[in-house]
Simulated assay, not measured.
Amino acid sequence: MTQAPTLIQLDTLAVGKSGTVVHVAPGNYEDGHDLARRLMELGFVPGERIRMLKRGMPGGEPLAIKVGNATFALRRFEAALISIQPE
C-alpha cells in the first residue's frame, strides 16, 4: 500500500528547506487581479522545485523564495495559495 504524498502550504515551509510545487489555488487581490495567474507567471508552476531562503522580521514577512534561478519575495497570504511536496 502506498501513501499519498504529504502536501503543505509554502508559507509553512521551514527556512532552508526545499520542495516541489504541486498546485496553485485560485485567489484574487483586493483590486480583483488574478493572484494564481501572477504566481504561475513568476514560475510557481506544478513540478517546479522551490526553496525557502529567508523570512523577514518582525512577523515573518516577506518570504524570500528561490524558484529556478530567480528569487522572489512573497507575502504570507500569497505563499499560502501554493501547495508543495516537501523534500
Rank of each mutant, 00 (worst) to 15 (best):
Y29G: 00
A64G: 10
V45D: 06
A73D: 13
F77A: 08
G43V: 05
G43C: 07
R76M: 14
R37E: 14
A70P: 02
A14D: 14
Q3T: 11
L42A: 08
G27A: 07
G60K: 07
Q3L: 14
E48W: 03
R37H: 13
G32C: 06
L10I: 12
P62Y: 05
H33E: 11
G56E: 08
G59F: 05
R76W: 09
A25V: 02
G47D: 06
L81H: 07
R76P: 03
P46G: 12
V22I: 14
M52Q: 09
G47T: 05
A73G: 15
A73W: 12
L35K: 14
A64E: 11
G32K: 03
L35D: 05
D31C: 09
G43R: 01
T71N: 11
R51D: 03
P86W: 00
R76F: 05
R37Q: 15
A64K: 11
A79K: 00
G56Q: 10
I84N: 01
I65L: 09
F44R: 02
D11N: 15
E30Q: 03
R75P: 08
D11L: 08
K17Y: 06
T6C: 09
A25Q: 13
A64L: 12
V67P: 00
L81G: 04
A64H: 14
L10C: 04
I84Y: 02
V45C: 08
L53T: 06
A80N: 08
Y29L: 01
